[in-house]
């Protein structure tokens, strides 16, 4: 897996994500999770974010995905100013896709239904939703798992379903917070292959948080974080 790679999406240009001087504190200012953080990610770029535990990676993801609001600073994701966003639900539903480390899926729904859930609030008809879910499961190589529920799948399979769901509404950016964190090496490899496949098929920007150096190295670029800031050098790695 090469680490030296430039954007594969030449047609897609410009900045997908721009963060300037963002600060986020918790517990009434006692915990500074992000400290005047700035970064920029190009459209179509595949970036990994890494750093020691507690440095603010997940917090950054949550802000970028519109799950939470920053205290101050500027955040823009695919043209949307997150500090004065009108419809955060619509943003999460249509503009970004989210994959977490675990507990991604609704355990009582089968794989196909899980993929369809984000499409419920959209214009798509029932038939279209079903067709789209089939297509996505096919893409992640789990067509025959459509009617399995998460407890009947391996961790890796679950993450692939989660990726399919994240892509359901064709988001511009895919955020993944340690998607391979709880997988064995074989499953990690399959997820990474899948990401590579996806990038060939669509101009999606990917931001992936990971602890794993090998996983981080599959990205076009690695962003290192320490104590809520972006640093140039890997620290403690």
């Amino acid at each position: 897996m090469s680490s030296a790679r430039t954007s594969t999406n030449q047609g897609e240009s410009g900045v997908a994500i721009s963060v300037e001087g963002v600060t986020k504190t918790f517990d009434g200012g006692m915990v500074k999770a992000l400290d005047n953080l700035s970064l920029a990610i190009d459209a179509g770029e595949y970036v990994s974010v890494t750093g020691p535990s507690g440095c603010g990676k997940s917090t950054l993801m949550h802000l970028l995905a519109g799950l939470d609001r920053a205290d101050s600073g500027r955040l823009e994701v695919s043209g949307e100013d997150l500090m004065r966003m009108r419809d955060p639900n619509g943003f999460r539903r249509n503009r970004v896709g989210l994959v977490f480390q675990m507990h991604n899926l609704l355990p009582h729904l089968d794989a196909k239904s899980n993929v369809m859930v984000p499409m419920l609030g959209t214009q798509r008809s029932r038939r279209e939703r079903s067709a789209r879910a089939d297509e996505l499961l096919e893409q992640v190589g789990l067509a025959e798992f459509a009617h399995r529920r998460p407890p009947q799948m391996s961790g890796g399979e679950r993450q692939r379903v989660a990726i399919a769901r994240a892509l359901a509404n064709d988001p511009a950016v895919l955020f993944a917070d340690e998607p391979t964190g709880s997988l064995d090496s074989r499953s990690v490899e399959r997820v990474l292959e899948l990401i590579e496949e996806l990038r060939k098929q669509r101009p999606v920007t990917i931001v992936m948080v990971t602890h794993d150096k090998a996983v981080a190295n599959t990205a076009d670029r690695i962003i290192y974080m320490v104590d809520g800031r972006v640093v140039d050098q890997p620290v403690g790695l």
């Binding site: 639900n89 991604n104 859930v117 419920l120």
Partner: peptide
Amino acid sequence: YREFGILRAIGWSRRR
């Protein structure tokens, strides 16, 4: 909690 959190995270509105 987790189920509702997932639904909100993938864009379900409060009303839904």
